[in-house]
């Protein structure tokens, strides 16, 4: 009998990619009121698996060309440069991440001085752009999902 523990590391990665893809697929299609069949999801999962492997090789080449050893956000932007909408989305996300990191770095040494203005700023930000504060919500959701996934931990291993 095949269990998850018996698989090689590559097969484990693949099984996990398949599981995540299936959850995204079914959620997206259920929002539209449609069902997705299993073969369709498997094809999409396999596509994503291969695509990410190719992205890995590309990103490594980009970083090498810039004479770096670490892949950073600019390499990812270069990767999606030919699709303007994805590029805009990714750039926005990258801007959010970097600004958050800066805020974290500056807020630790001057935390005492900024005790009163900081909450106001947050409230303003929340009103203006809820997008900036999406990641904390996501973490909660991810934690919930993790619990759910543990409960129904039936990973399908019938793919090739």
């Amino acid at each position: 009998m095949t269990t998850f523990e018996n698989l090689s590391s590559h097969q484990k990665l693949r099984a996990t990619v398949h599981r995540d893809t299936k959850s995204i697929c079914s959620e997206t299609c259920h929002l539209l009121g449609l069902e997705v069949t299993k073969p369709a999801m498997e094809v999409i999962a396999e596509l994503v698996y291969k695509k990410i492997s190719v992205y890995g090789a590309d990103l490594e080449a980009f970083a090498k060309h810039a004479k770096r050893q670490t892949i950073n956000a600019d390499d990812v932007k270069l990767l999606v440069r030919r699709n303007p909408t994805v590029l805009a989305h990714i750039s926005e996300l990258a801007g959010n991440i970097s600004s958050k990191e800066k805020r974290r770095k500056t807020s630790t040494p001057v935390a005492k001085q900024r005790e009163t203005p900081a909450p106001k700023w947050k409230e303003k930000d929340m009103e203006k752009s809820p997008v900036v504060f999406r990641p904390p919500e996501r973490k909660d959701v991810e934690a919930e999902q993790g619990m759910e996934l543990d409960i129904d931990n039936m990973i399908d291993l019938t793919f090739e």
């Binding site: 994503v48 695509k51 990410i52 992205y55 990103l59 490594e60 970083a63 090498k64 050893q69 670490t70 892949i71 950073n72 956000a73 390499d75 990812v76 932007k77 990767l79 999606v80 994805v86 989305h89 990714i90 996300l93 990258a94 991440i97 970097s98 990191e101």
Partner: peptide, 15 residues
């Protein structure tokens, strides 16, 4: 070759 943290987040989003 290493993978930066922000780059990883972005690749996840692309996927």
């Amino acid at each position: 070759t290493k993978l930066g943290n922000d780059a990883l987040t972005l690749v996840v989003e692309v996927a």
